[in-house]
């Protein structure tokens, strides 16, 4: 066993502690809820309106939840600067996500312009759709030491795949239910973590003179 593995574990523990407030889970799960709702609304209103409603639904949750992050959970977690290795991992994740997104956009354009044709291979396309979030979330989980994202990636993957398959079968309503339900599961997981976070990190009651003492020692 690597003799530094205990220190590596400690560093990973410190890194993963930044994600224990569940904020990211809530916002990412809500993406599925918003898009599932928009897709369902397309049966009743135009695509433009349903897209606008989806954005509105998303922002209604996204803005307050990130305000909670900036004003409540982040100050309770404190500030930490990680070493070069961790910063390199974060850069790898950013690079990977950007590459996957660029490839997706290019592939989407090629499909849209019919340069690539999937006629007769629609289920293969559904499987590819399902793999995209799995790759992104798995990489994030590994490099950011954010283990919960393995589950999120799996759920997203299942959601994307089932949505495509059910849409192909003409079961639009069920495909939207799947999207919204999976989004709901991820949001509930995030909420559970947020509640646990509030219990573990109550509002900081710092005895001012103790804190001052340290500041004055310089």
């Amino acid at each position: 066993m690597n003799e530094n593995s205990d220190l590596e574990k400690l560093e990973k523990k410190a890194a993963s502690s930044l994600y224990q407030d569940g904020i990211f889970d809530i916002s990412i799960g809500h993406v599925l809820i918003a898009f599932g709702t928009a897709s369902w609304l397309e049966n009743y209103i135009t695509e433009t309106y349903s897209t606008l409603i989806a954005i509105a639904i998303y922002l209604v949750v996204f803005i307050p939840i990130w305000l909670v992050y900036f004003y409540v959970t982040k100050p309770r977690l404190g500030t930490v600067k990680f070493g070069i290795k961790r910063r390199r991992s974060n850069a790898i994740v950013m690079g990977l996500i950007t590459s996957v997104l660029v490839v997706n956009i290019v592939v989407f354009i090629l499909i849209f312009t019919e340069v690539i044709q999937f006629s007769g291979h629609e289920y293969l396309l559904a499987a590819v759709f399902g793999l995209i979030p799995l790759v992104i979330f798995t990489a994030m989980a590994y490099f950011l030491s954010y283990k919960r994202l393995y589950l999120t990636g799996f759920l997203f993957s299942v959601g994307f795949f089932l949505k495509e398959v059910l849409t192909l079968q003409g079961l639009d309503l069920y495909s939207n239910i799947v999207f919204i339900s999976i989004g709901g599961i991820i949001v509930v997981i995030g909420l559970a973590y947020l509640i646990r976070f509030f219990k573990k990190y109550p509002k900081i009651k710092v005895n001012s003179h103790e804190y001052q003492e340290i500041g004055n020692q310089q």
């Binding site: 400690l10 309770r76 404190g78 600067k81 070493g83 103790e210």
Partner: peptide
């Protein structure tokens, strides 16, 4: 140990990680 694996951290972060009281 924490400071060895991190570049730097503030009091709040160290307190959360170690479970020590402010004092």
């Amino acid at each position: 140990s924490y400071l060895f694996v991190l570049e730097s951290a503030d009091f709040i972060f160290l307190r959360g990680q170690t479970g020590l009281t402010w004092g």
